[in-house]
């Protein structure tokens, strides 16, 4: 099986990767900014934020990918694939920085 030339699937997959990563870090920031109980004061809890964040981030990334994969025309997908490629590494750098600022 060889590689394909479908820019719509390419754009959808790119948006899944970026969207899920951004969603995960945004959720972490939102809970930090919204105010949270100090972790050292929690004795036990049923709720595991990490699992929820991962689940929600994957869900949002998939929804974004499906909408884009279905709705965006091929020419527009090709243009946006090139434009968004340039944004991938700067976005990753910002996300890494944020995960260190808000662990």
């Amino acid at each position: 099986m060889t590689a394909g030339t479908d820019p719509r699937v390419g754009l959808a997959a790119l948006l899944f990767g970026l969207g899920a990563s951004i969603s995960y870090v945004a959720q972490r920031l939102a809970s930090y900014l919204g105010g949270e109980v100090l972790a050292s004061t929690v004795l036990a809890s049923e709720h595991t934020p990490f699992f929820w964040r991962v689940g929600l981030a994957v869900f949002q990334g998939l929804i974004l990918a499906v909408i884009v994969g279905v709705a965006v025309p091929e020419d527009a997908a090709r243009r946006w694939l090139s434009r968004l490629t340039a944004a991938v590494l700067p976005v990753v750098a910002v996300l890494i920085g944020l995960t260190f600022v808000v662990p």
Partner: peptide
């Protein structure tokens, strides 16, 4: 992206 759009240069770059 590489599997589904890797035959094009924009796919490979992405």
């Amino acid at each position: 992206v590489l599997r589904r759009a890797g035959a094009s240069s924009e796919g490979r770059k992405a």
